[in-house]
Design a protein around this nucleic acid. Sequence first.
RNA 1: GCCCCAGUAGCUCAGCGGAUAGAGCAACCGCCUUCUAAGCGGUAGGCCGUAGGUUCGAUUCCUACCUGGGGUACCA
Length: 680
Amino acid sequence: MVAGDIVQQQLDAEGALEGLSKKETKKLVNERVGAASQDLAARLADRIASTGRFASVEAENGYINIGYDVDATTNRLVREVLEQGATYGHAAPDSQNFKVMIEHSQLNTHKAAHVGHLRNICLGVALSNISDAAGYSTIRTTYIGDIGRHVIRCLWCYKAFHADEEPPAGHSRGRWLGELYVESGNRLRYREDVLKFLNTLIKEDAGLQEGIDRVLKNLWNTDDPVDGEDIAYILGRVTNGEEMTAEGFVDTDTVVPFFTLLGDYLRAAVVQIDQENTEAVAQANARLEEWQQLHATIDWWPHVPRWTEEEKATFQLWEQQDPAFVELWHTTRGWSMDELQEIFEEFGAEFDVWFSESEVEEDGREMARELLQRGIAEISDGLPVVKIDEKLGLEQETYRTMPILRSDGSTLYSTKDLALARRKFENYDIDQSIWVVDVRQSLYFDQITKILELYGFDEAEANLHEGYEFVTLPGGIMSSRKGNAPLLEDVRNATISRALNVVQEKNPTLAAAEQEQVAHDIAIGAIKYVMLARDGNKVIVFDPDEALSFEGHAAPYIQYAHARACRILERGGVTDVDVLAALESTSFVKPVAEELNLLQQISAFPEMVQRAASERRPLHITNYVFELAKRFNDFYHEAPVLQEGVDPAVRQARLALVTATKVTLANGLALLGIVAPEQM
RNA sequence: GCCCCAGUAGCUCAGCGGAUAGAGCAACCGCCUUCUAAGCGGUAGGCCGUAGGUUCGAUUCCUACCUGGGGUACCA
């Protein structure tokens, strides 16, 4: 760019540009700029070299390569690393003079955590660590979803169907509640699911039109014949390829015998189909399987409307703070919290402040009232909402309309978040408030922020949504109903047992307890690395097999480099303290290329921490630490430390380099919340 | 419809307007009497989604389009 300007000025001064079109000017400048930049680089290089501050300065291809005095620079660097130890790379605490609150790991009680939550925890922990290390005063917080529709549903299901059951002992009680929540959804959504199945069949199954007659005939022949109008309804929908609704039936329970008889048709379809056509066979089988699953609970059908009423009534029990219900809530909440604590501990999530939805509910309700009173919110179709675009005077739809309470007066997520956002600034004197929540909520958080602005809350703009894409499975979107969303606990267990196998195979002489500890560190590290080594705006396709791979670009590769470094130091019989003490007499003369590459990478760490913090991208640290491990492995193969024939001075220098590498690797991994074992 | 995100090697992903676009996995060929082979070296593999624009220079910035994903008033 500079060279371009210079060339242009030169040509201008020479008068060479006179009368030329813009395009011709460009062409001329273009022709000369390459040479000019090389010339410029060479002249600059000369000038830099003349300062005598660098060991070598070379101009190459328009770039300037500067060489340092290796011995002095290395000594200084290694000293810095060893003196600072676990804080190498960190800025002085609070040196940024900026206080930030990071909210993450908003797990729910009464519900099982899945791999998507795992990404949140890993990201939140890493972002907090990095923020802290970069010198931002960081308050770690979480916001537990201990009330809301999921809790109500779970407890409704508990009271209605499982009240007399003994919940399992110990930590699986939380998981048990999670299963109840899934069951509640299946029950309440049952009619929808059945109708969806029927309507897909009507739309996609060409054979149904022919087969329907027999099904309907059998419907006449049951002991308790169904209404003729309903049979006509079914026939009409099928022949016209139109969707059925529950309301379309005179007697909605007609669906029960109809759905049962449909099984005969589907079973026959599997047999009749051309067996050569594997795709059609697979589809027919899949349909039959889905039918079987739904049919297993066909007796649910008549009850669904009543259940829906019961769910509403359960909401009201909470709203009215019914003592028995509140007690049940409190007890079951405790079961889940025990489990959440374990997860947090295992994944290194520590919090300075704990929030939960139940504690901000009243504040939120109060705020909603005020918003209505002040005319910022209004009742639209019986629903309290803020018409944000209208209030901001925006022509184009941008922030749309946000409900701030349910029409029955119960609170929504938004009700509570408005209150919480305000509380954070009022009680903790922060400069910035960050939500680590997946990207699907970005409109939601924009809405919250804008409503706070309309409310007159000055700090609203200091809210920041740190979004990240969600986690899917190789097969497609996860659906908890189909049960193919891997639960956090399952992923954790599978990875740990897999890691244990590898450790036992690779390091059979290690004591069993050590093997288990190492396997644990490796497994958790592997999971975390997968979650952090992709940019936030990339969807992670979570392949359990790949997460379990311990080779290549993954945490174990880095941990292995660290363990190797530890091993060398152990065999060399030196500690960090010894190396530091000997530094005065350590000289780094004529290092090989692998050593220089390693040194360069170590020295880049502090800057990388700053960058990761300011961009809020732990990815920079995962990349950094992988590159560092790679360079160490290169060094390991090319530059022997303890082997015979290595000059004692070289050995001393290399031991120092290995120590600095070990410290930096451990520090980098620590920022990611990954443990660096000393042996593997 | 409107808004957001992604599209780079067979797959998963890096790539701070600049040098010959890089890793890992998978494939193929090598390296353990040596500080741990969870490692290292090599081979092969690319219209950087498409078309314009800005720039001396674009994978990178802008616009449009294509493809995929997500969001879009009483889910969280």
